[in-house]
Amino acid sequence: MADIDDRWHRRGPDGKPVRTDRYGVGARWLVRWRDPDGKQRKKSFTRKTDAESFAASLEHGLRSGSYIAPEAGRVQVGEWAKRWLDAQGHLARSTFVRYEIAINTHILPRWGNVHLSSIKHADVQVWVSGLAKEWSAASVIKVHGVFSQMLAWAVKDARLARNPAEGVRLPRPALPDHRYLNHAQVAALADACGSYGIVVRFLAYTGLRWGELAALKVGRVDLQRRRVLIAESVTEVNGELVWGTPKTHERRSVPLPRFLADELASRIEHRPDDALVFTSPQGGVLRVRNFRRRVFDAAVRKVGPQGFHPHELRHTAASLAIASGADVKIVQQMLGHKTATMTLDLYGHLFPDRLDEIADRMDRAASAPNVTRK
Rank of each mutant, 00 (worst) to 15 (best):
L350T: 03
V371M: 05
T20G: 02
W153D: 02
H90L: 11
T339F: 02
Q333L: 14
V126Y: 11
A215P: 01
M150D: 00
L116E: 11
R74K: 13
V97S: 12
N238D: 02
A69I: 07
I141D: 06
A275Y: 10
V218T: 07
H115Y: 15
R258P: 00
G61V: 06
A323M: 09
D123T: 06
I68F: 15
D363E: 13
V237R: 02
V18W: 07
R364H: 09
K133V: 01
W80T: 00
L223E: 12
P246I: 09
R22Y: 05
E100F: 01
R314H: 04
G194R: 13
L85Y: 07
A158D: 12
G112V: 14
R169M: 07
T316K: 05
V186C: 06
L355R: 15
N104E: 13
L286E: 09
V371H: 08
M150F: 03
P255W: 07
A190C: 07
A188D: 11
A231N: 04
E357Y: 13
S136V: 07
A298Y: 09
D360T: 15
D6N: 07
L213T: 04
A265P: 08
I68R: 14
R226T: 04
R314L: 03
E312P: 00
D21N: 08
F291C: 00
L170M: 09
H178Y: 13
L335R: 06
V288N: 04
Q125N: 11
E357K: 14
N113F: 15
L313R: 02
R63D: 12
I68V: 15
G348F: 10
E212Q: 04
Q88M: 13
S195R: 14
H9M: 02
Q332F: 08
P173R: 15
A188I: 04
I68E: 10
M150C: 00
G73S: 13
G65D: 05
A154N: 03
M334Q: 11
L151D: 00
D363W: 08
N370S: 11
G219T: 05
S319N: 06
S118Q: 14
E312T: 00
G24S: 11
R267T: 12
D35A: 06
K302V: 03
L256E: 05
R354Y: 13
Q40R: 08
E357H: 14
A317C: 11
M150T: 00
R373G: 13
A187M: 12
I230P: 01
P310M: 02
F54K: 01
K156S: 08
S139I: 08
I268F: 14
G24T: 12
